[in-house]
Design a protein around this nucleic acid. Sequence first.
RNA 1: GUGGAGAUGGCCCAGCCAGGUAAGGCGUCAGACUGCUAAUCUGAUGUCGUUUACGACUCGAGGGUUCGAAUCCCCCUCUCCACGCCA
Length: 424
Amino acid sequence: MIRSNPEKIREMLIHRNKDTAILDKFLEADGRWRQLTQENNQLRKTRNTVSQEISKMPKGEEKDKKIAEMREVGDKIKANDDEMAKLEEIRMDCVLNIPNIPADDVPLGKDDTENVVVYEWGEKRKFDFTPKDHAQLMLDLNIVDFERAVKVAGSGFYCLKGDGARLERALISFFLDMHKKQGYTEVFPPVVVNTAAVTGTGQYPNLKDDMYWLERDDLWLNPTAEVPVTNLLQDEILTKEDLPLKLTAYLPSFRREVGKHADTNGIIRVHEFNKVEMVRFVEPSTSWQALEELRGDAEELVKALGLPYHVLLLCTGDQSFSCAKCYDIELFAPGSNRWLEASSCSNFLDFQARRARIKYRPEPHLKSEFVHTLNGSGMALPRTMVAILENYQNADGSVTIPEVLRPYMGGQEKIVPPEKKKTF
RNA sequence: GUGGAGAUGGCCCAGCCAGGUAAGGCGUCAGACUGCUAAUCUGAUGUCGUUUACGACUCGAGGGUUCGAAUCCCCCUCUCCACGCCA
């Protein structure tokens, strides 16, 4: 891919504000590598044939001479192999740091100010009282505890309690049930993943500083369920009948969020949050349609919750490393008068499939091909909760529970503030 | 964690002791034949490269010995069994 169309990659790197030197470095290493591969193939051919001859030769000068010759050939092969190993290292280092190519219909742009709103839904609510922001609401409702979470884990972590914890659980169940109706199979994968997995989906190496690493065991805390779920299929060759394969998972996600200063108030940006994720493995020809479906699946959830939102098509400069095209769903939070990113739906084409070696066979006996992978959040919990609380708040300080969630909360219709201050 | 046994093509399994072209079976596909969706026979059925004909690679991963390694040596990973620990 890089080899066959280097100019396209160069163009892409420029659009993503990346240095193109990495490409030239790759091409140089790759060229030499291929040259050595050819050379070694020839040498091995010689060695294979001559070794066979040697086995049939009688003992004597002639045989000793051949053996000596082959010893030299062997040394040469080994020398080439050593050089190739070094080249391979350079090559992989380059490849792993070259991002995916944005799709043709992705708008050019340098940062998030140039994303394009492609869809809007719902009315921004008009209040006849001054709406609170979520942090204030949660404290007043006694459904969150920041200080005690800090005691246990440190800043950037929080503890839900009472109806807050129940609302969280209700949302998770609601999302998973909706995804089941949408045809996804629920999985509950490990929360801890290895380096091969984070490499397979493209978080490693470029996002490694934003992930928690367990040094002693060389494992990572799940940064997004996309990682364990997609990598479940690592190194597999699927059949055509397996596709499209649609999986969903609820899983905690962990982000170190180093160097990010905004949003220290409340639960907008935290180190650990719950998320329900959708992952699709599809035939390449269907992946663009699958992206629209995936986005629709996520939107269906927000509509059911009655939350005003809009959909952004991310521009080239704001896209993540691995994706070819990405929609963000942002929920409107009236208490703080801002949009909150609560879902990202991306098509990775074969970018992840190549790294994780996920293939399928279009027909029995045909050559296997890489699948296309996609994923989308449906949804990230904290920001969904923020939107619910701020949109559904009432003048008396209570919050109405969206109807679709009530069955998950024993029919409860409202979360009301405690009459007096309570310890817990 | 300790001891033992293992890992071979889509699946099963031989070869390893004693180094010299990875055997056989199942499944799948194609063809042949037969009066039908069966049987039988023949062929195909790992990856990569390129000049489409060949070549290279491939026996859990990586090293080593050797003219030559599935086979010998080192090291690592994973699986199974037993014991230990444990929600």
